[in-house]
């Protein structure tokens, strides 16, 4: 078997195959990135239903535009930019986003996935996420994108509309302010 058809096949190869109508390649792109697309949309919209719609609509826009993907950016960054724009568009249409967050969002902790031995309690983890939501948008998104998606600061900057340096600063400020809030009773 060609190693490029293995589980580690780069996105760009899958994109080429999907362009040729290969549904299996398309399925793998969806399988790889739907969660990330959802979380990026959720980070902007803070509403799970709207986030799911934005993730789907953004994905479809990307699929339709596959012929225009030239590979200057990584596929993931390109896709997430489209999803992010879709979510921002929905936000503009719907007006203010909901303030209530996380109550109806499924979290890793809810599924019993062991993340790390040091995790103390599900409730404490949920509280941390809740406090994260209170941070300014760019700080919150910088922390989320860096932690949840493993994006580089350059990629984070592209998504939040900042330079790489500014994305790094937002991330550090976000962590510091989150810790301050967590230390409060």
């Amino acid at each position: 078997m060609d190693s490029r058809d293995g589980p580690d096949t780069p996105d760009e190869v899958l994109v080429d195959q999907a362009r040729s109508g290969n549904e299996a390649a398309l399925d793998r792109l969806v399988s790889r990135h739907h969660g990330t697309a959802y979380r990026v949309a959720l980070g902007i919209l803070r509403d799970p239903d709207m986030a799911a719609d934005a993730a789907q609509d953004g994905f479809l826009k990307a699929i339709r535009a596959l012929d225009r993907f030239r590979g200057e950016a990584r596929f993931r960054t390109w896709l997430l930019t489209i999803v992010s724009n879709e979510a921002k568009g929905q936000l503009r249409k719907k007006g203010r986003r909901r303030e209530a967050v996380l109550d109806d969002v499924t979290l890793v902790a809810d599924r019993g996935v062991p993340v790390d031995d040091a995790v103390v309690a599900v409730e404490e983890a949920r509280r941390a996420r809740r406090l994260l939501q209170e941070l300014p948008d760019k700080q919150r998104l910088a922390v989320q994108l860096r932690l949840d998606e493993g994006l580089s600061f350059r990629e984070v900057g592209e998504l939040i509309g900042s330079s790489e340096g500014a994305a790094r600063v937002n991330y550090h400020h976000g962590i510091r302010r989150l810790r301050e809030r967590m230390e409060r009773p």
Binding site: H34, G35, Y38, R39, L42, P48, A52, A55, Q56, L102, V105, T106, L107, V108, A109, R111, V115, D116, A118, V119, V120, V122, E124, A125, R126, R127, A128, R129, L132, V143, L147, D148, I175, L178, R179, M182
Partner: peptide, 16 residues
């Protein structure tokens, strides 16, 4: 703090 956040990473809804 990051470990706590990681433990509560949102996951996509079933079926998405």
């Amino acid at each position: 703090a990051l470990r706590l956040l990681a433990a509560a990473t949102p996951v996509a809804p079933a079926g998405l």
